[in-house]
Design a binder for these strands. Structure first.
Lengths: 181, 181
DNA sequence: CTGAAGTTTCAGTAATTTCTGAAAGTTTAA
DNA sequence: TTAAACTTTCAGAAATTACTGAAACTTCAG
């Protein structure tokens, strides 16, 4: 048994949150386990630690790879694959954000763009297009600013946060400067 | 039939995306319909437009109300309840964000905080706590900055976006000003 | 009161998603 | 080339989630 009870509670929590974060329970547990465990783990380790079938582990790893969240390593004289989380915590969060944007926002933006190209055929469609336009612009704005945040280092953000620098204040300042010039 | 085919495609799309946005297919459809339709709709209207049972509409409305996304109206001389989306598109997005934060982030932050209060019992737990600390700090930073963005008006964000003002640039500026003073 | 017009609830069923385990596939050492 | 050691796949079973429709409930006009 590789799990102490405190660690187990974290792993199980990841499982429960998994579905909210975009994957299913066992995939969530697997990811939590890989993050919290210092040494890379084999598929069998995971299967035993979480009491799930070997086949399920294989599918879960595939899923995590599609999110670019795990990496595979090999040890000399050992044919097994060893799995560990890919990148820093910040990078992982960035990847989850990006993947979710692809799944949750991009398809909608694309549908909206298509729809907005057509002429409205009647009064109802005029109203509908107005709303679609609003949603479209909002989604573009949100993805733009989310991207901006992602491109910053977490250290910098933290420092600024502790300095009490709200985006609002900062941007107001910028606004004034722009208007002056 | 209240749906033209173009509008129907939007509503069905909301259904498909529904589960990714945190609710289920029919709730997604219902919300899409309410947004795209200028006049408020009764439960029966919704049930007929989407071909779902009356009971399901009732449960869906309840769900949307728990997200604070619909409001109920009454017409004089008419006992029926008329439903329409609550607030502007921006407010709706803000509410979805907030609700999702409550469901997806807050429980994890709380678990992490609890766990970080305990002394690690062995080497593995020392490592585990380090990781939990990193995740904790990241989640706090992200929610902080997300809150900042939410508190801004979308107009202002759009204007700044079009001016080419990246957060990075803006914040660098602020940084310099702070260091000077 | 009464009953008509509406809403909500919830047990049972339907649909969907996830998991298992056995079979098929792959890789490598000898 | 063989076989051991490992991984992947996938059909069917299990678990979960969503939906229906009938009964219970609420409200209100007469």
């Amino acid at each position: 048994m590789i799990l102490t009870s405190k660690i187990e509670s974290f792993v199980m929590h990841c499982g429960e949150m998994g579905s909210r974060w975009g994957f299913n329970r066992t995939v969530g547990q697997m990811y939590g386990l890989l993050i919290i465990h210092q040494e890379p783990l084999t598929a069998v380790d995971i299967s035993e630690a979480l009491n799930i079938s070997r086949g399920n582990v294989s599918m879960g790893i595939k899923e995590l790879q599609s999110w670019r969240l795990v990496q595979v390593q090999h040890k000399p004289k050992d044919r097994k694959e060893y799995y560990s989380p890919a990148g820093t915590i910040w990078e992982m969060a960035t990847r989850v954000f990006e993947e979710r944007r692809k799944r949750e926002i991009d398809p909608t933006l694309s549908l909206l763009r298509d729809n907005l190209l057509d002429e409205p055929a009647n009064q109802k469609e005029v109203y509908a297009q107005e709303k679609m336009h609003e949603i479209h612009d909002l989604l573009e704005t949100v993805t733009h600013w989310a991207g901006e945040l992602q491109s910053m280092s977490p250290d910098k953000l933290n420092t600024l946060m502790k300095l009490g620098a709200g985006v609002t204040k900062v941007i107001n300042l910028k606004d004034k400067l722009i208007n002056k010039s």
